[in-house]
Design a protein around this nucleic acid. Structure first.
Length: 627
RNA sequence: GGGGCCGUAGCUCAGCCUGGAUAGAGCGCGGGACUUCUAAUCCCGUGGUCCCGGGUUCAAAUCCCGGCGGCCCCGCCA
């Protein structure tokens, strides 16, 4: 049993009592006690019933307390005002905890539902920046959580290889730099080089109208060309895409499938969507300012109030498709609502041997898509567009799919003034907005390098005996913990201000802090003589109880995070546990203690390690042996 | 103009969904603890008109209404 089970029994017992005695059906809420000194489990039952029973809250609480006292896992119950404060039988609870952690408290029944999570989605025209990292880390954590929760999860990464952004970079490489395919090898890492090129092109557009003509030419070639220029452009975007995959792999983020926009176009998914929308009369010829275009008519719903025109373009007057239409088409494919399908080819192989596949017309058939739930991890600013996709599904008659189409939104990453200055960006404002076009931002790989450098210095100074290769790998894992925790600890819907000092600080409320607590736990195991678990030796040190009490919440916390799809809750829980463990570590010794004490504490330490292995795996934070 | 989000300590943020006990962390600042399982740690201290006003309630940071301030969206870009 864990805390969720205890609560359930307490609630049932109280409910039953009040139902039988007074004929009322109280709703029992549990409130976190101010501290575990006050209670293990608390509920303000007296207040909730005072009105119905017309009696003082304290009286009612006293009555409820008597009922709860009978439960075998309860040691004592105190009444404070309208609250009842339940104290668990600590030794019983500890035994329950160890038993649960012997197995897997986070194993859930298969739901037999497929979820497609699409994240990262970086334009393959320049280096990834920290905004993209937030997207990828959130998406990856979400995928891991849902997988653990029993869903069949497929991770896709949408590559817009035909868009304006790629065209701009290609214009720069070809018409400003005069590069050809065979030159590209000399410009690695290409993503970083292209960042400058892209910024330069955007500046040049303002003064050089000739260049804009090239942009259109490239754009056309990207969609359907087979010329040398088209080949070149494809190679550029392929290489940069590969770089993005490598960048994210540094954080141990992997994908199952790359979907390329050029393939979506070629497969005719946009036409398919358009046909269905026209059939339902939702896609129509545009009028007035939209004349010549085909638009989707939007109902007068709140989420579309922002759009004052009541319609959105699907097909431009020049006949090209907007991203919106392409995405509607592709969403149909994800849900398996169209028969048309790609063939799938291998894009690359991860070191683990896992294949990263890509949409194609040359590989073989496969079972990608056919999702029950589709989740798009996309910037909050695109909320209206995502709402339109959902509406389009509804309008086409796919109401269930519309309900299961989730825009997993997240806030924008800005830079703190100090951080911006470090990168040569000066502003009067305290918060500096990034801009891909202007090249204002922090490149993901640069950030990772910096953090790894600091971590490596630390690790080598503390453990000079480590060989460099080993130390580097540990430094990398510390970097992963640092970056991932930073991206998960904030409310995902809120904008965040990125401060590089904070990111590189490996102590405080951080990933490395959590990792370090696990290293300490493992050291205890390594350095202590083994001893049988003995409940008699438990709770002789006052930091054991809060740790055990917190560990009992593992399933409850995980389920809440999974239901709400909120990795932040788990990140903070992991931190809370690490804090409690560090307190335990400081005041309760294990090695060298008498057998019964050592046995009990080793049990707690092992439980902590097991719990953290489960939690950190779901958060994508690696565990290290030494740091 | 319309729609949305946000406002909690010097700074960065939890808590608000689902009202409940003295409002919590981290950073910063001041002090203390390493012959002991690694001090990337811990302990003590410092610091708050929970933006303002009103309402609902036994009870409001939390729910409702109205202000004020900041941000985002409202492209035939994505």
């Amino acid at each position: 049993m864990l805390i969720d089970d205890y609560k359930k029994e307490i609630a049932e017992r109280i409910r039953e009592y009040f139902r039988e005695k007074y004929g009322v059906e109280p709703k029992i809420r549990f409130t976190p006690p101010p501290s575990f000194e006050v209670a293990d489990i608390a509920t303000p039952i007296g207040f909730s019933l005072a009105k119905v029973l017309k009696r003082p809250p304290e009286d009612i609480a006293k009555e409820a307390a008597e009922v709860v006292k009978g439960l075998d896992f309860v040691e004592k119950v105190e009444v404070a005002k309208g609250y009842i404060n339940v104290f668990l039988d600590k030794k019983r609870a500890l035994k329950d905890l160890l038993e649960e952690l012997q197995g897997d408290p986070l194993s859930f029944e298969k739901k037999n539902k497929k979820v497609v999570v699409e994240h990262t989605n970086i334009n393959p025209n320049k280096a990834a920046h920290i905004g993209h990292v937030r997207n990828a880390v959130l998406g990856d954590a979400l995928a891991r959580i849902l997988r653990r929760y029993g869903y069949d999860v497929e991770v896709q990464n949408y590559i817009d290889d035909t868009g304006v952004q790629v065209a701009d970079t290609v214009v720069g490489l070809r018409f400003l730099r005069g590069l050809r395919k065979e030159d590209l090898d000399r410009y690695e890492p290409l993503d970083k080089y292209c960042r400058h090129v892209y910024t330069l092109v955007n500046k040049r557009y303002e003064i050089d109208k000739e260049l804009v003509k090239y942009q259109r030419e490239v754009l056309k070639e990207l969609e359907r060309g087979s010329s040398e220029l088209a080949e070149f452009a494809r190679e550029v975007s392929r290489r940069i895409c590969k770089r993005h995959i490598e960048t994210m792999y540094r954080l141990e983020i992997e994908y199952d499938l790359l979907t390329r926009e050029s393939h979506i176009i070629r497969l005719g998914l946009a036409e398919e969507a358009l046909r269905k929308l026209k059939e339902k009369g939702v896609a129509v010829e545009g009028e007035d300012e939209f004349s010549g275009a085909i638009v989707i008519k939007l109902p007068n719903k709140r989420e579309f109030k922002a759009l004052d025109k009541g319609a959105k373009v699907l097909v431009r007057s020049d006949g090209t498709f907007t991203y919106l239409l392409k995405d509607i088409g592709y969403t149909l494919r994800k849900f398996g609502l169209v028969d048309k399908d790609f063939l799938y080819d291998v894009f690359m192989r991860y070191p683990s041997g896992k294949e990263l596949r890509t949409t194609s017309f040359e590989g073989k058939k496969d079972g990608f898509g056919k999702a029950d739930i589709v989740i798009n991890v996309i910037d909050i600013r695109q909320g209206v567009l995502q709402a339109i996709i959902r509406y389009a599904l509804e309008a086409m008659g796919y109401e269930e799919q519309a309900r299961n189409f989730i825009h997993y939104a997240y806030g924008v990453v800005h830079l703190s003034k100090k951080t911006a200055e470090r990168f040569g960006i000066y502003s009067k404002k305290e918060i500096v907005k990034m801009s891909g076009r202007k090249g204002i931002g922090i490149i993901a790989d640069d950030l990772f390098d910096e953090i790894e450098k600091i971590a490596l210095e630390n690790i080598l100074s503390k453990h000079p005996e480590l060989d460099l290769k080993e130390a580097r790998e540990i430094a990398r894992k510390i970097m992963v913990a640092s970056v991932r925790y930073m991206m998960l600890k904030y409310d995902r819907l809120k904008d965040m201000v990125f401060d590089i000092e904070e990111a590189m600080n490996l102590s405080g409320e951080s990933g490395p802090y959590i990792q370090y607590s696990v290293v300490r736990a493992k050291n205890i195991i390594k350095k202590s003589e083994p001893a049988e678990f003995d409940p008699e030796g438990a709770f002789l040190c006052d930091k054991e109880r809060p740790l055990v009490r917190s560990l009992l919440e593992i399933r409850e916390r995980f389920v809440e995070a999974a239901e709400k799809m909120d990795p932040q809750l788990l990140a903070r829980y992991a931190y809370e546990l690490a804090m409690r463990f560090n307190e335990f570590y400081e005041s309760c010794r294990v090695a060298g203690e008498p057998d019964h004490i050592r046995g009990a504490r080793l049990g707690i330490v092992k439980a902590y390690i097991k719990a953290m292995e489960l939690l950190l795996d779901v958060l994508g934070i690696p565990i290290v042996e030494v740091m």
